[in-house]
Design a protein around this nucleic acid. Structure first.
Lengths: 236, 236
DNA sequence: CTGGCCAAGATTGTCAACCATTTTGAGATT
DNA sequence: AATCTCAAAATGGTTGACAATCTTGGCCAG
C-alpha cells in the first residue's frame, strides 16, 4: 500500500555493483529493469506498491532516465501499470487470467516455436539444453529455487530462440514474467526431481526430431506445470 | 535500407500540431508513439528502415526523451526491434507467424474477454458499439479504409476493455499493431459491407448475452477475417 | 588484390539541472 | 459536512553535455 521505505526495498546488494567487471551486463537500463523485475517477481514488491522514479533512481544510483525506461518495460511485461502523472504501481495477476489467458498463450507460442525449432536445433543447442538440466540438478542439491526456475526458463528460451521467429520470442519475453510472478506469489512450484525429469524428457523428445513426439511431451509438460485452478490455499 | 531522408519521411502534417487545442491527446510520448506507429502500420516506413532518435526528434519537434520511449513502446508492439548502441529498425511479420501465432493468440484473448464481457456490458457499451458500426458505415460512404479499420479496432477494444481483465487488454494492445501492419502490407482487406455486416452480427450476438452464441459468431469472425495462408497473390 | 587494422564519424546511453503540468491531500471556509 | 484553495509531491519534458559503442572507409602489409 504505502510507499516502501528504502530500508524495506533492500536492493543495495545488486545496486552498487556498477563496476563489477564480471557482471557488466550492458546498458544500465537493462540492469535496472532486471533488478526491479526480480524484486517484483520474487515478491519484494507487492501488488499495489507504488514505484517512484526519484526514489528508485536514488536507491539504484542512476538518473531518472533509465528508471523511467525500466518502468515502461515492466509495464509491457504486465508487472506494473502506470497512469499519466500518477506513476506506476505493481500489478497482481488473477488465477483465472493465468489459467485462461496466459497459459494458453504460452502454449500457442511454445507449440509453434518448438515445431519450428525441431529442424533447426544444432548439436550446440542440444548441449546448451543439457547444460541447463545440469544446472537444475545443481540447484536441487543446493535447494536453490531461484536457480531452478532460472534454468527452467533458460531451457525454454533456448528452444524458442532457436525457432528464429522474432515475434514469438518477443511475445514470450512479454508473458513469462507474469507467469513467473504468479508462481512465486502462490508458491505453485513443483519438486526439483519432477522438474529435472520432465526436462530430460523434453530434451530426449527434441532429439528424436519427431514432431508428434515433441508436441505431445510439450503439451503435457505445460499442462502439468500449471494445474487448473489452485485448491483453496490460504495466503494472507 | 538506407537512412530515410527527412523529405522521405513526410510526417510534417501531424507533427507541428503541438498546440492544437482540439487534438491535445495527453502526454507527448503518446502522440509521438501514435505518429510513428501509424507511419509504420500504414507503410510509410518499411521493414528494414532505421529509426534514428535525433532525426525523429528533430522531425517531430520534441526532445530525444519522448522519442526514445516511443521507440521502446513500438518495440514492445513488435513493430521495431532495437539493439544496444545500434538503434531501431522496422520489423516485418511473416505470413506464417501471423497465421500460426498472432491470430491464435488473438483468438485466445478475445474468446476469454468476450465471455467475461458478456455479463458486464452496459447499455452505454452497447450504444458505443453501435456508434462504431455507424462510423464503419460512414467510412464506407467515404471509401475511407483508415477510418474503417479504426472503428473495427475500437469495436473490439470496447468489448475487451469491458471484460475488465488488465492483462488481457494489455496483451491485446501488444499484438494488434502487428496484425494491422500485416493487413496493410499485404492488402488483406475485406469489403466495407462485409465488415459492417459482421460487426452487426457480433453486436446482436452480444445482446443475447448467450455465451455459446457469442463465441460462435466471434470465432467465425476472426477466422474469416484472417483466411489461412494467402492464395498465390504475387506481391513484390 | 586481399584481408586486417585503425581512426573518425555517427548514434545511442546516461547524466544533471531545470521547469511545466498534473494529481492529491490537508486545511480553511462556508 | 461539503466545498474550495493551495502548496507539496510526482511525473512529463527540455537542454546540453559527455561517455560508450558501433560502423565505415581508407591505409597498410602480405
Amino acid at each position: 500500500m504505502s510507499t516502501p521505505t528504502p530500508s524495506e526495498l533492500r536492493l543495495p546488494v545488486q545496486m552498487a555493483v556498477v563496476a563489477d567487471p564480471g557482471t557488466k551486463a550492458g546498458p544500465r537500463v537493462q540492469q535496472v529493469t532486471e533488478i526491479l523485475r526480480t524484486a517484483i517477481i520474487s515478491g519484494r514488491f507487492e501488488p499495489g506498491d507504488r514505484l517512484i522514479e526519484s526514489a528508485l533512481s536514488a536507491e539504484l544510483g542512476t538518473s531518472r532516465g533509465p528508471v523511467r525506461e525500466a518502468l515502461r518495460q515492466l509495464e509491457n511485461e504486465g508487472l506494473v501499470m502506470s497512469f499519466p502523472y500518477r506513476g506506476a504501481v505493481v500489478l497482481g495477476v488473477s488465477d483465472e487470467e493465468v489459467q485462461e489467458v496466459l497459459i494458453p498463450i504460452r502454449l500457442t507460442l511454445e507449440r509453434y516455436s518448438w515445431a519450428q525449432a525441431l529442424e533447426q536445433l544444432t548439436d550446440d543447442d542440444f548441449a546448451e539444453l543439457g547444460k541447463q538440466i545440469w544446472l537444475m540438478e545443481q540447484a536441487g542439491k543446493a535447494n536453490d529455487l531461484i536457480k531452478l526456475v532460472e534454468a527452467d526458463l533458460a531451457f525454454h528460451e533456448i528452444v524458442i530462440s532457436a525457432s528464429g521467429q522474432l515475434h514469438t520470442v518477443q511475445l514470450w519475453r512479454t508473458i513469462w514474467p507474469r507467469i513467473r510472478a504468479y508462481f512465486y506469489r502462490y508458491e505453485r512450484f513443483r519438486s526439483f526431481e519432477e522438474t529435472v525429469h520432465e526436462h530430460r524428457e523434453l530434451l530426449e523428445a527434441l532429439q528424436t526430431r519427431d514432431r508428434a513426439v515433441v508436441l505431445g511431451v510439450l503439451e503435457r509438460h505445460i499442462d502439468v506445470a500449471a494445474p487448473p485452478a489452485a485448491p483453496k490455499v490460504k495466503r494472507p
